[in-house]
Design a protein around this nucleic acid. Sequence first.
DNA 1: TTGCACTTATGGTCTATACCGATTATACTA
DNA 2: TAGTATAATCGGTATAGACCATAAGTGCAA
Lengths: 233, 233
Amino acid sequence: MSSPIYIQIHNEIKKAIEAGRWSVGERIPAERDLSEQFNVSRMTLRQAISTLVEEGILERKVGSGTYVASQKVQEKVSGVTSFTELMEAQGKHPSSKTISYHAGEPSLSEVERLNLEPGELVLRMERIRYADDVPICYETASVPEKLVRNFSKSEVTKSLYKTLEDKAGLKIGKANQTVSAMLASEKVADYLDIKRGEAILRLHQISFLEDGNPFEYVRTQYVGERFEFYLNR
Amino acid sequence: MSSPIYIQIHNEIKKAIEAGRWSVGERIPAERDLSEQFNVSRMTLRQAISTLVEEGILERKVGSGTYVASQKVQEKVSGVTSFTELMEAQGKHPSSKTISYHAGEPSLSEVERLNLEPGELVLRMERIRYADDVPICYETASVPEKLVRNFSKSEVTKSLYKTLEDKAGLKIGKANQTVSAMLASEKVADYLDIKRGEAILRLHQISFLEDGNPFEYVRTQYVGERFEFYLNR
DNA sequence: TTGCACTTATGGTCTATACCGATTATACTA
DNA sequence: TAGTATAATCGGTATAGACCATAAGTGCAA
């Protein structure tokens, strides 16, 4: 045993995690407790924890504890397009809760992005999407009302793309997306079961038909801790 | 002065080095002396030195001393990176500051992602990128040291892709990226002139050669308030 | 039941000290 | 002079304790 103590402890904790001693997201004992268990000073124990944090195996939260880092849900941007398919590809059970669904006057940004005529209405849908019953994102989607006038709520919310292609004979073309980071508002934090001020990955997407007309404007707020995009270039 | 003492000392020493207080390769005073000068404990002083070592600005040699390891350089980055393209697309003036350029032992995650052999070193570069002199992101790039052994710092930092293709005859293939959201740490907040806890857009990229071997691992932290990522699909 | 003050637990930082092994400088010896 | 033993210096590790700000749990009052 020529290694420093903190390396030995690092290895022991790592093995314990791999062996399933604590599951992902679970809190491991406090530094003061662990230092007692390993019979070392807290600073030495902290050194061991620090190396594990640098490796991304653990996460520290001030005032709360140290947790086994979670693996995130990944979206492959070049490939699967729907949340449902994405979740199923990850072996998760997808579900969603529609918070609102009604037509109304468009906002200026909606008029601009959806290229709306004066007086034209938009159908606005808010929903929360879950993976294995854990909230992943809060999403607001706006669609020109005239496009979906003849469809049922179920046809629109369950699979807008499929409905438009199959029943309206429209072909879906490209989409452009804007990704940014922000902090969670009180309202969204509440929906997503996180705290206000936590990191949010924001995705704005405008989807176009093959003829170049925009038909959908989606604003999604993903929980930073639970979701990441995966891109292939 | 709300920053921790070790961050303040880190900044002071860094400024002193930039100001030429010690030249490259020169030994700085011993930890015990510096701790006396700054009137802090040696452990606190060591924390400050440690952050500078992690950035590659200083090098420690057991039994000998701590030495200045690198020059600080400001340079414009030519249009190879997506960052530059994106900035110019928005009519901004891109620039960057290299804050470290240093070969060393790879971390476990670097070994894994760059597929390194045991004992192989990595060249690690840290830099801050600016648009119109406003800091936009903090970036750490790791490259297997053997790939860039024969190139100058300028060749590597200014245009790694071009250098590898033109001078090493290597062909660049695909890259994969993950995008997620997180909160700014103390250190990065300091670099980016924001507050700790603000929203960060994090991009991890692994670049591959045409033969499928990874040659670059880049971790970028964008200021959420100042940067958006555009995608077309 | 709700809201708020209070308490407790936790990680973050900092001190002061000690001993170790590696390196380097010094003094001594052949 | 050249080589070698010794001492001083240096970073690396480790201890034990302290105080702070944050986060979360607790219980009281409205």
